[in-house]
């Protein structure tokens, strides 16, 4: 029997990221966008006791569902936290090593997991397209033990050279590059999640490595959407589609306004455990 499922590229990214989250770890997320939605989804469905801190100093809040349309400007975002502190305080906690994972969105990423959220095209002073800036990503990607990056699988995003390195991955990939730049030891990017693929990083070369692909995509589909060629895991796994339960929770409760989960529609048919792509919208101008 076959089933057909339709979801956005961002819903796939969020669901895959959410499934990586663990209750016994502490997370640092930006105040809005895909990382926060992924944490909230994981808390809603799998890891109710997972704790996270937010840049504005909120520690371990318990956001009630359904979340309001404009969560970022709402007291709901900080509801029933264990503490309301400030930005320097939570950055200190990350600096002390308390925070296991930083979860961040990137506009562009290179093979060492360095990433850009500042501008693309032309020059810094007069960019073709300017974005919001490093935000809290530089400190989060520097101070948390591990960083999870969320981005779309596009050639213009997986680039040989960033237009601007807003936040650090493994820098030039050389041994101890981060420590020589003044960053804490044993830290760095851990996973990169796209709608089509999950990557990790080779322990020696620090280069990005393809770990898993979506059931509706091939390794070649992924490589076609990258400027650089990643290393390959010994066996590239297949990860799951967003489940009906995840999509229902995302759409009705976690992001009911659809502000974050919107994106490129993908339709996949599943039959006898095999999935194939029915149709997908072309990539747009979404960041």
């Amino acid at each position: 029997m076959s089933t057909t499922r339709t979801f956005t590229d961002m819903e796939q990214i969020i669901c895959t990221t959410a499934r990586m989250m663990e209750e016994e770890r502490l997370y640092f997320v930006a105040i809005g966008g895909p990382p926060l939605i992924a944490v909230l989804l994981s808390k809603r469905l799998r890891t109710p006791n997972l704790t996270y801190v937010v840049e504005d100093g909120t520690i371990a809040p318990a956001v009630q569902m359904p979340a309001p349309a404009f969560l970022i400007a709402s007291s709901a975002a900080g509801y029933r936290a264990v503490a309301w502190t400030d930005m320097n305080t939570v950055d200190f906690h990350a600096g002390l090593g308390y925070i296991d994972y930083g979860v961040l969105a990137a506009v562009q990423v290179d093979q060492y997991g360095n990433f850009n959220s500042t501008f693309v095209g032309a020059a810094y002073e007069r960019p073709a397209r300017r974005f919001g800036g490093p935000g809290g990503a530089n400190e989060i990607a520097s101070l948390c033990w591990r960083t999870i990056l969320m981005t779309r699988q596009q050639g213009r995003k997986f680039v040989n050279k960033l237009d601007f390195m807003s936040s650090p991955g493994f820098l030039d990939g050389s041994p101890d590059a981060r420590q020589r730049a003044g960053l804490p030891a044993d830290t760095g990017p851990w996973r990169v999640v796209t709608e089509m693929a999950v990557f990790d990083f080779d322990e020696e070369s620090r280069r990005m490595r393809l770990l898993a692909v979506a059931p509706w995509a091939t390794v070649d589909d992924v490589l076609a959407q990258m400027e650089f060629k990643p290393l390959m895991a010994p066996s590239v796994e297949t990860f799951d589609l967003p489940s009906e339960e995840e999509l229902a929770a995302l759409r009705a409760e976690v992001d009911p306004s659809g502000r974050t989960i919107r994106g490129r529609w993908i339709t996949v048919e599943e039959e006898d455990g095999r999935a194939h792509l029915v149709q997908q919208e072309a990539a747009g101008e979404e960041s």
């Binding site: 600096g95 360095n114 500042t118 810094y124 490093p134 530089n138 400190e139 990607a141 520097s142 101070l143 960033l162 601007f164 390195m165 807003s166 936040s167 650090p168 820098l171 590059a177 981060r178 420590q179 020589r180 730049a181 003044g182 960053l183 804490p184």
Partner: peptide, 25 residues
Amino acid sequence: RYLGGTDVFRTSGTKLIEDPYTGQA
């Protein structure tokens, strides 16, 4: 213990020094 190594470092007024206590950057 952040900013180092990035273009934010390069284009800002940040400096990288050898810490006189630990000898680390």
